[in-house]
């Protein structure tokens, strides 16, 4: 069982857990990505997420299918939120259930790592000073050349 979505509303975490849990599952994992107040030493006030929604939806689905191929019987629900988020808001939720804990834990890690690597979603961080910056993970520790 797989469901993936790009959403423009708050993620209902409890609903995701209910959705993946079944009488056959004995282990459920939940990964949440939340907006934190500091990044690269700068105080963050919020993040604006945008996506190439059509492709992001397809890519999320492909990642979930790949995870299921590794471990048949997985139940996976992934939601990624876009729009303007405040500190502590949930940006991504990955709920995974399986009969056993190891496949559920492994799949949760696999999904978030692949999501960060290949799903076309971007974030613009807003800082307390009033400026903003598109986050570029490939820039690593390089200094920001433009705001």
């Amino acid at each position: 069982m797989i469901r993936t979505a790009i959403v423009e509303r708050a993620i209902d975490v409890a609903a995701l857990l209910s959705e993946v849990t079944s009488p056959a599952t004995g282990a459920t994992t939940l990964f949440l990505g939340t907006v934190r107040d500091v990044n690269d030493g700068r105080a963050v006030t919020g993040i604006e997420y945008t996506a190439y929604t059509a492709m992001a939806s397809d890519e999320l689905q492909r990642i979930a299918v790949e995870a299921s191929d590794h471990a048949p019987g997985l139940r996976i629900v992934i939601e990624h939120r876009i729009g303007t988020l405040s500190l502590t808001d949930v940006s991504v939720a990955i709920a995974v259930a399986h009969a056993r804990r190891a496949p559920a834990l492994d799949a949760s890690r696999f999904v978030i790592e692949e999501l960060k690597r290949r799903v076309p979603i971007w974030k613009r961080e807003h800082y307390v000073e009033g400026d903003w910056h598109w986050v570029d993970p490939t820039a690593a520790t390089a200094s920001v050349s433009s705001a």
Partner: peptide, 12 residues
């Protein structure tokens, strides 16, 4: 074709 230029992704 639907062609798109993709900046470095930063989801999560």
């Amino acid at each position: 074709q639907e062609i798109a230029l993709i900046p470095p992704v930063a989801g999560g």
